[in-house]
Design a protein around this nucleic acid. Sequence first.
DNA 1: TATCATAATGGACACAATGTCTGGAATGCT
DNA 2: AGCATTCCAGACATTGTGTCCATTATGATA
Lengths: 193, 193
Amino acid sequence: MKIERAGERNTIDRRVARTRGLLQDALIALIPEQGYAAITVDDICQRANVGRSTFYTHYGDKDALRSATIEAHLRSIGRRREAASQETGSRLFEFSLPMFEHAHVFRPLHHALLASSGDTIHDELRERIRRAVREELVEKRIGDRGMPAEFAIQFIAGAFLAVLAWWVATDMNLSPAQADELFQRMAGKGVGA
Amino acid sequence: MKIERAGERNTIDRRVARTRGLLQDALIALIPEQGYAAITVDDICQRANVGRSTFYTHYGDKDALRSATIEAHLRSIGRRREAASQETGSRLFEFSLPMFEHAHVFRPLHHALLASSGDTIHDELRERIRRAVREELVEKRIGDRGMPAEFAIQFIAGAFLAVLAWWVATDMNLSPAQADELFQRMAGKGVGA
DNA sequence: TATCATAATGGACACAATGTCTGGAATGCT
DNA sequence: AGCATTCCAGACATTGTGTCCATTATGATA
């Protein structure tokens, strides 16, 4: 799986390609070690063996580098999904498998994509929710055979937070009780294929 | 809904309680305006009318204040949940309703906590997943009576991203195909109460 | 290969924010 | 009223950011 780093121009100076590649790789390598938030531009440059001033000729700041890195890989995922879609025909949630596969190959990248956004405030809340779900699932011995508990916990917690965020962001036509009822139904029975 | 800010000691100097309350309120007020990451300790102090050095006598850093603030609100939710738990008896996902209700009252806070990070790539990935889910649900006419389509979309997309993030962050003992299979099962049938 | 345009570099710089520490003023506690 | 505690402004060293520049190095091109 090769990642195409070009973008705008048709031909790119090899020095540019080399520098950007080094910086992107360095960022991805550092994320598992320190976490994105703790990484400084200088850290990246030292890991990449690139001058700090050079960094700024390519990217405005740390976030710009991250965006560019992810952008390149997202294109690759998109292509893979289209290909898979034609093979498998009609299957529920076709995006799922290609995504897992790409994540399997580019694990550090996906770590960067999905791990704490730097806004650590999200993570704290997420962890709280997960704990609440975990307690209930364990306490009430809910769970399928062969379904890892943690998988179900992540599933439910992630779904809840997404739904809550959506509800809060919209007009909230639904009452809290209604929103809760819908969540309970989905969590309990799924989409009911 | 009153937020109890006490914690350790039984009696707290009023000046302490006042200062901490001001700081916590200032943080919450600032989050919707600037986003957590962009807020400086000085911003918080000016909004709270509290000396910057005073800040550090109470909290080690910005994150400590954040934790304490969330802590205070979550305690309130927790009490509410326990109360609800006794009323309704044994019900699945007891955290859900109290959370929706708290979000209903403290909407700005939750909006700040859950809103898209402003990170365009992050949001782009989420939006792509949502789009994929949306297309499939609509195309295949899946959906409960009385279940708003957007609710189900948010639910599934959020669950998928959470599961993917968890899978990537851990050792990934599961193969992509296995992870996919588990996801499909949960999405289709829920926890199967 | 020689030339030239472009990129990389280290160092200097102004700036912003952090976290620590002071002595004195203010304020709640009893 | 007296006392202990808290608040505060300001100074300080430290770290990271983003800009700029003169110089060197290196692809691209003919």
